[in-house]
Amino acid sequence: MKWNARTITHRGEQRIAVVFQKDELLLYAVKSIPGCRWSQSLKLWHIPDTEENRRMTGLPLEAALQPNEEGLRGLKNLKLWMRSKRYSESTITTYVDATKSFLTFFNDRALNEIGNDDVVQYNNEHILKQGLSASYQNQVVSALKLFFMTVGDRKIDVENIHRPKRAKALPNVLSKDEVKAILEAHSNIKHRAMLSLIYSCGLRCGELLALKPLHIDSKRNIVLLQNAKGKKDRIVPLSPKILELLREYYKSYKPVHYLFEGYVAGAPYSDKSLQSVLRHALFKANITKPVTLHWLRHSYATHLLESGTDLRYIQELLGHSRSKTTEIYTHVSTKSIQQIKSPFDDL
């Protein structure tokens, strides 16, 4: 099969990243592997790091290479520094993993021997050769900048580490009918409530799982999101229909601490289980698109724009720091495009 594979540590778990060009047959083959998951942050599919999966993907069975001792100490210091700055654990994991991959590539070199040309070499001989995305390459650059800022005696010029040209990819958006089919697919009220709340409030996966009952203000019809991405609090409007659904759900499940809890009372629902809830909804709704939870957030923003909501309000609701991030939804809104008459109709 035409794919590239490498080992990664994702959310504290050893996994195998599988990277390939868009191909429906390959996508089906990868998704059929038990334990296969999509990483929204890394923009890739990954599977359990087992002996069987290593053989299937062509990876060596022996343990993967590691950075040298100096590199390992540097990774430890990076992790401690980021924690002291109150970075989220998911960001810490992403940055440490990216830096670890780079230091493993140059594990025969001291840190003060690594220069900017080596970053170019790594990009060409590892990232491009493995077919990894520009998004991942950007993550590596961000991680290396932070890492080498914390290294005293260094040859590398942090400010001159160049980034790849960003691809202008449009967000994936579902139609309202598709969203309705997904949200109504589950008979389980808990599953329906979780997916419905993500779409109706434009939430990120982590924001939903961090919610507590006290964050739902039924008097003011708002949801309070605390310590969201970028350590920012924000409020989003709560649909009366969702409020009724949540009240029905609450009476049935009576969560102890978090609004949505797993099998253990008081513990938050896992993101892995939430992704599984979405997969089952897609199957029941007979939707074959590779939909992720973030598609619901994109769809929320686009549908707001198409209904006439001002971009400034959408930016606030989504928690975007820059208006440019929100403006991308103007490129996927079809409201104006559908009003354009094709000259073909006049032939």
Rank of each mutant, 00 (worst) to 15 (best):
H215E: 10
H215S: 15
H215Y: 10
I216Y: 00
I216C: 06
I216A: 02
D217M: 08
D217R: 11
D217Y: 09
D217W: 04
D217P: 02
D217Q: 09
S218E: 13
S218T: 13
S218V: 12
S218R: 12
S218P: 03
K219E: 05
K219V: 10
K219M: 04
K219H: 06
K219L: 09
R220Q: 10
R220D: 08
R220T: 02
N221C: 10
N221K: 15
N221G: 08
I222M: 09
V223M: 10
V223W: 08
V223Q: 08
L224K: 14
L224I: 11
L224R: 15
L224S: 11
L225T: 02
L225I: 15
L225P: 02
L225A: 07
L225R: 06
Q226A: 07
A228G: 14
K229W: 09
K229F: 11
K229T: 12
K229G: 10
G230Q: 03
K231T: 11
K231F: 06
K231D: 15
K231M: 13
K231L: 12
K232G: 08
K232V: 07
K232S: 07
K232Q: 12
D233M: 07
D233A: 09
R234K: 03
R234L: 04
I235D: 01
I235G: 03
I235K: 11
I235P: 01
V236S: 01
P237T: 00
P237K: 02
P237L: 03
L238E: 04
L238Q: 08
L238Y: 06
L238F: 09
S239D: 10
S239Q: 07
S239F: 01
S239V: 06
P240V: 06
K241I: 05
K241F: 03
L243P: 00
E244K: 14
E244D: 14
E244G: 11
L245Y: 05
L245M: 13
L245D: 04
L246M: 07
L246F: 08
L246K: 03
L246N: 05
R247A: 07
R247Y: 05
E248A: 15
E248F: 10
E248C: 12
E248Q: 15
Y249A: 04
Y250Q: 13
K251D: 12
S252C: 08
S252P: 00
S252M: 14
S252H: 14
Y253M: 03
Y253C: 05
K254Y: 01
K254I: 03
K254A: 10
K254P: 01
P255H: 13
P255F: 13
V256C: 07
V256D: 14
V256T: 15
V256E: 15
V256W: 02
V256K: 15
V256R: 15
H257S: 13
Y258P: 10
Y258G: 09
L259H: 05
F260L: 09
E261L: 02
E261F: 02
E261K: 02
G262S: 12
Y263S: 14
Y263K: 14
V264G: 05
V264M: 09
V264T: 12
V264F: 08
V264H: 11
A265F: 07
